[in-house]
Amino acid sequence: MSATTTDTSVSTLEPTGRARQLAAIRRLRALRWIGGQFFLWGVILLGLVFMVTPGVWMLLASFKTQAEISAIPLQFWPTQWRVNNYVETIEVMKFWRVFGNSLIITSCVTIANIFTCTWGGYTFGKLRWPGRDIMFMVLLSTMMIPGFLTLIPRYVLVAKLGMLNSYSGMIIPFLTGTFGIFLTKQFMLGIPDELIDAATVDGSSALGVYWRIILPLSKPIMAVLAIFVFDWAWDDLLWGIMILTDRLKWTLPIAIANLRVQESNQYELQMAGSTLAIIPVIILFLALQRHIVRGVALSGLKG
């Protein structure tokens, strides 16, 4: 290919000229590299501004007065940082109470999903059994039906199981999920069969393989599952409204939705509530992000 021309042309030069040539090429490369980095960072920074502005706006709005939020023309900074918005929001929402409820429910759901989805991923991705692909397709197809359509039968079921107005009613119906199993199955394809075969030869049962091989190797995908499931469960509104009637058992999204209905004009309280609500998700993401990138890489790449 034409690619080798630089090599051949360089090799025909005198030793001293060649060194100079190489230095020039290196300089050129360095310049191009710097130029490239400038371009790349330009794009990245532009994107950063675009991505961050609404979030920053939300944060700033949470410190403003109502009048400042809807001021004309647009007022970006609060004239005075009203920490009191947070104090008021925490009181109006019964924040610590609903925050605790959300934390308990979401943690239960997340931890359960980490185990059930890796279990499912192993079953559908690694074990070989007749009917596997059909059953998997059936599971996958449940992702294609809008959730609210099955709301009433699900409610009746949970009511019959005596789980209304309780944390268990918020947890038991969400112990596993199709998306999580799909994600983990993709990841499992990347775990070499030889490892499993070797363990089997050493006398490990399938359960032993799951516990000793699959779980340790699945840490990255567990992190991905944790963040996806946590984020999703943390945000769920409709089911909570159906199940929880006692205001002391409400979760954060319900309390925020209620703030929206009751304090419909008080954007600043809604923004303060929303800002408080996302903090745990951000902490979780920051703590797990290394694992997440590895997990996604491994689930996406190996076919």
Partner: peptide, 24 residues
């Protein structure tokens, strides 16, 4: 193509994914 601040940039871009849809 860049080597510095990748984690920071990635997290920042990921931020909106986590923000609640209603507030956004």
């Amino acid at each position: 193509g860049v080597t510095k601040f990748v984690g920071f940039v990635r997290s920042t871009y990921y931020l909106p994914v986590m923000l609640p849809m209603t507030a956004m």
